[in-house]
Design a protein around this nucleic acid. Sequence first.
DNA 1: ACCTGAACACCGTTCAAGT
DNA 2: ACCTGAACACCGTTCAAGT
Lengths: 200, 200
Amino acid sequence: MGRRNEHTRDELREIGLRAAEELVAAHGLAGLSARKVAARIGYTVGSLYMVFRNLDDLIAQMNERTLDALYARLAAAVGDRPPAAAIQALAQAYLHFALFETHRWLALYQHRMPEGRSVPQSFTEKVARMFELVQHHVALLCPRRSPEDVALAARALWSGIHGVCMLSLDRKLETVGGRPIQEVATSLLDNYLAGFVGRD
Amino acid sequence: MGRRNEHTRDELREIGLRAAEELVAAHGLAGLSARKVAARIGYTVGSLYMVFRNLDDLIAQMNERTLDALYARLAAAVGDRPPAAAIQALAQAYLHFALFETHRWLALYQHRMPEGRSVPQSFTEKVARMFELVQHHVALLCPRRSPEDVALAARALWSGIHGVCMLSLDRKLETVGGRPIQEVATSLLDNYLAGFVGRD
DNA sequence: ACCTGAACACCGTTCAAGT
DNA sequence: ACCTGAACACCGTTCAAGT
């Protein structure tokens, strides 16, 4: 057998990633398997290994696409808002993505590279680019603060918003009478920034 | 074969959980399997299903033990400190646990119950108990605030600290020149509380 | 060069059979 | 009642063999 040649390498990679995204969207990262992806695109499992080093590689590439989508949403959300509003918009856009593309977003953090191996550099760069978006607007908000202070504040805020998403999605940690996630995020931003700017 | 009777049901459960904890500590949740646990305690896989409903049940029980350990550390950390110091101590104790018992702590959040099933009530209660520890000290710090405000603040802070841990452990998100995790956490608490108390 | 099919070493879960 | 051993349906990964 062999030689179907219906798709180029790039096409195979594309439909593979798309199938993976659909599987994850439907059943979460745990519902993803190389065999299921192969079945869904009408190839044998072995074929996937022509285009992806292994399943971890496939997931890493899928996650990079998620990062791209997330970045686009964040960048669109800021628009030309003034700093404080821009930061709030960034947070709300992040929340929105986590809430409405839950499985895709969770896969970003659930997937851990095997023991020794690290994540590709392109992945790290996309994360850095996203972080700088936050940092930029914090800097605009507090022009007199040192770059170190701004970096620290951006990191604290970003981590905080991330934690709000995580704990909200994890039904395990949903305490009774929990507030809507947006409200918690707003509280975090408002109070942190009040403290941060107040000591400007 | 059969009938070894070297261990009671409770003992079997205990050595099973202990073996699971050792495997997770060494290789993370991904390195855990029912067959490995069985091998490690010198029983066949089937025997595990006498004591645990399935692997998810085993992991859930293991995670409950982790929650107990974490709660003990947090409670010990507060001691009889005044509110503000108590909150800082809680955060630092949480960070410490995440940093030094990383795999055990990560397992708490990496493990997701299968599609329909939810986490046992005892688990939820242990989480609630931990959350109330934070809430209690925030209430002491701001006696004039409404219970709703206090709950919101506690939730924002707890989520924030959690996010700091998560993103710090995830080497993926380590941005270059990242500050030490404790510093980020302190910034989060100090500035949030400055904002929160300032509007008291 | 592309792709298959079968193989290998794993996995969770069940259960008849043995003591 | 306790425990085993084998079975079943899955899994990731490799690779000789076919076109």
